[in-house]
Design a protein around this nucleic acid. Sequence first.
DNA 1: GATGAATGAGTTTTCATTCAT
DNA 2: CATGAATGAAAACTCATTCAT
Lengths: 198, 198, 198, 198
Amino acid sequence: MAIIVDKVQKRRDIALSCVKLFVQGGIGHLTISEVAKKAGIGKGTFYDYFKNKEAIVFEILNILLEEHSKGKELKISQASSTREKVKMFFDFYSNNEDKELRQIYKEYISISLSNPNKEMVDFQSKCFNTYSSWLKNIIQDGIENKEIIPEALNLSKGLYYFGDGLFFNFSTTNVIGDIKKEIHFYVDSLFDLIEVKK
Amino acid sequence: MAIIVDKVQKRRDIALSCVKLFVQGGIGHLTISEVAKKAGIGKGTFYDYFKNKEAIVFEILNILLEEHSKGKELKISQASSTREKVKMFFDFYSNNEDKELRQIYKEYISISLSNPNKEMVDFQSKCFNTYSSWLKNIIQDGIENKEIIPEALNLSKGLYYFGDGLFFNFSTTNVIGDIKKEIHFYVDSLFDLIEVKK
Amino acid sequence: MAIIVDKVQKRRDIALSCVKLFVQGGIGHLTISEVAKKAGIGKGTFYDYFKNKEAIVFEILNILLEEHSKGKELKISQASSTREKVKMFFDFYSNNEDKELRQIYKEYISISLSNPNKEMVDFQSKCFNTYSSWLKNIIQDGIENKEIIPEALNLSKGLYYFGDGLFFNFSTTNVIGDIKKEIHFYVDSLFDLIEVKK
Amino acid sequence: MAIIVDKVQKRRDIALSCVKLFVQGGIGHLTISEVAKKAGIGKGTFYDYFKNKEAIVFEILNILLEEHSKGKELKISQASSTREKVKMFFDFYSNNEDKELRQIYKEYISISLSNPNKEMVDFQSKCFNTYSSWLKNIIQDGIENKEIIPEALNLSKGLYYFGDGLFFNFSTTNVIGDIKKEIHFYVDSLFDLIEVKK
DNA sequence: GATGAATGAGTTTTCATTCAT
DNA sequence: CATGAATGAAAACTCATTCAT
């Protein structure tokens, strides 16, 4: 009998072995040959596991995002106040561990902006729904705990957009400022307005 | 006597004649041949006016953005309240006249995210500085007019990011909602907090 | 005790299970993977039974042709006159039962015209000899029966070519006419000349 | 001003420069690189003049066939009797000058049998109509000249098929006989039946 | 006996850019 | 000034075949 391979696992393995490659060189100038070489497989094998170059970017993004989400959930739940939770929520845009993920995300967004396909649009929608709900829930909890005023709920979606806009501007600009500081500054400024005065 | 061609004007003419082409088909699959044909010039001539394909996208963006800015300045100055001015500021993301510009901008951002060059980064920085200052000034004026509380100034940059994040999410998602409504809702919610109670 | 597989039978089974596949899609774009899948075997197994893709076309052609010949012999022997026998001989090119065989034959001829190998050439020669002799015998019998004039024997080979030329033209042309009618018309016209007047 | 090239002529030139290549090696294993090299042009230039590999085969076939037809018309018109005209008509299948054309035709037919497209089907139809009419006219003239009996007209189409069938069988078989002799033998045998006895 | 995972050579095609006229 | 013919590097992708298990 022939070898039976865990296709899903091998797909992951190939994807993960190339993360560095994608992060460093960018996707545009990367060839399948290079990718296959890095993964230690033949070009044909690459196509047994991925439909095309975009597919592996997608896979990498999914894997890293999944891992990221798990860790994030824990961190947020451990934060003491709503203010801190929100800051933690936006931590993705500045922390060091997610640097790779951010890079991949950037490349992915680039593709998604110019050549979107249904899969990508769906993925984007899913991401938006998942993460904006997450933020909304944090706010809602804060309201229920009497930490922040009820009107703050209306700001949650806009606050979510803030994060993406920030990310987007830091990605395309070299105005290097401290992104973490900017986040904290904005969140603090906002919370000064919406926190229940004791 | 040789015909003296206004190089700058011809550059503009070529760029403008191709706006539709770029808006419809996207930049990715557009060839220089098509662009030259559309502009009614030879391929060689194209290279007399533009360094490469990206350069014309850049030119188009600059022309449209310049036009846009002029009109915007007027509109904002005519708005009655700070609240309205801010709404007017974000009008770019939803109004019908700027549809083409938004499309070009999207394509441009896509390039800028994956293959930025110095020129682009500078442009992005300039844009960021110009427009975020603009918003800041609006806020500042509002504060000076006693329309809104002084603390609002700290929110201006974050508010600016909100706009980009919104644009970004609507561009990549098919969650079709009314973008104008979302803007107004957020601005209103925020202004309810920062407007000086009379 | 090991299972003893009838190699010859299995070869036939594999070939026959793929007839539809070859008829529908054409050979050009058919992959061994598809063939193996359709036959319910592994790709490796395919190579245990066939040297390459051409080999299975060959096998299919042989099987179908063999079946066809048996039936044909019977039908011809039952025909009442030489005229009818000849019509029956050419029936292959128009009847419905042999549609699949004709399709396969067409594909095979295509290969044979551009990439002939010894095996194919031999096969073609054998076919030519078998079938043209067959036709010749029919004519000869007719002569001996005093149905047709002795000179007709000289026409038998040319008559045989007529069939192939007809097939060839109907295969490459869309001039859809009734192929059966054309056959009968020609055979009748010719027999009017060569039949012994009573 | 840039050079203006006679596109049609250059297309012909490229096509003709490769005739030998196609005749010798067959089309299947020929790469565009080889073709371009032989024609003394770049690969890209090839695609400026031909859509793909098939297109040049088509062009070659058309050129050679056109030339062939001209010469043929003259020869046939000079033949003394209908019998000779018909033999001359089938001369294409055996004479030495048309060897190249036959080879190309063979390759073309191979493509046409397995991957026909509308253009090919139309071409085949046109060829069939043109040449079968030609033969028919020869016969008709013979009838009008009282050389052959009126019933012979019904045989013209079938006679045309004879030629293709002959060609087809000689192309796929190695039964090397003298194709010219076969043609003459059949035509003579047939004419013995249809010529008006004096 | 049977399998299917792995391979990589080989080919088509595109298109930005150049430069002779 | 303007042109468009010519180029060829570069990349994606296919698929027959092998062979370890």
